[in-house]
Design a protein around this nucleic acid. Sequence first.
DNA 1: TATTGTTATACTCTATAACTATA
DNA 2: TATAGTTATAGAGTATAACAATA
Lengths: 154, 154
Amino acid sequence: MDSGSEHDLPDLFLRTARRIRRSMHARLAPLGLTPGQARALRILGRSEQPLRMAALAGQLDIVPRSATTVVDALESAGLVSRAADPANRRSTLVTPTAAGRAALERMAEDRRRAAADLFATLSPEQRESLRELLALLDVDAADQCGPNEPRRAG
Amino acid sequence: MDSGSEHDLPDLFLRTARRIRRSMHARLAPLGLTPGQARALRILGRSEQPLRMAALAGQLDIVPRSATTVVDALESAGLVSRAADPANRRSTLVTPTAAGRAALERMAEDRRRAAADLFATLSPEQRESLRELLALLDVDAADQCGPNEPRRAG
DNA sequence: TATTGTTATACTCTATAACTATA
DNA sequence: TATAGTTATAGAGTATAACAATA
């Protein structure tokens, strides 16, 4: 009734993002995970190797300090473990535990269903278009506005 | 280098949203406004009538309590004013002040440029496609996941 | 000295619950 | 009693700055 007009592209984008985040939050709450924690766990789960904190932060597109908070929570929940990198003792390697991998499996199905729900108003072709457009936006995006990338002029 | 793969639609979406929010934050910081405050001010500025708190919350797609915080900040900054609705003294009517309207004008140009930057990797046709897809997503979106709408089954 | 991660802190955004004033 | 808004509080997400350990 009050949402259909006058929004520019960034506005529309953040509006939908808010809705997605709200939905994820509700879906994950019963599992005791926040959307950010679940996202980090997925990244760790799909990685072949244990990830350093900085690498995880890079994939999450947040500063390393913020990754610490996320990993702290996951570690407390027993879903990931930290270990010093033998090759470079400054580095911390993070890996999902067995419980972490089990949680990922439990979440996967639910996640697919939720995504389908969220984008239910789009046809499969439209969803594919959206995916392509988002991928385009993502390409050099981090270079421009990422928190970890060096700032450039402009 | 590390962002190009394995993201589903919600992930891609939130990733870009994060980037947009970061860009807005940086752009608005010199003006002493947060993205949320600027958004509320724009909604108030484009409204013909003064808005009640609940109406503003509705357009912002947040709960009324959250709108209070935003309006508090705008009022402190002298950009909006609150007045009791003469017709119903329970209601509060919010209007931009002259300073608020001036701030909106100052922001408008900058905002257009920022939006162009953010979506620079897309052609005009692609931007239009994206706009249409987002509009579709927005249609019955609030009904499903909004914080103010009554919860339904499913 | 440079790098990696962390401790300490702060701010934005949003939520629920309880309360006040009004209807 | 129901409604509009607020006070009080909390938690998620993210940031900067200073510091320790290691290289």
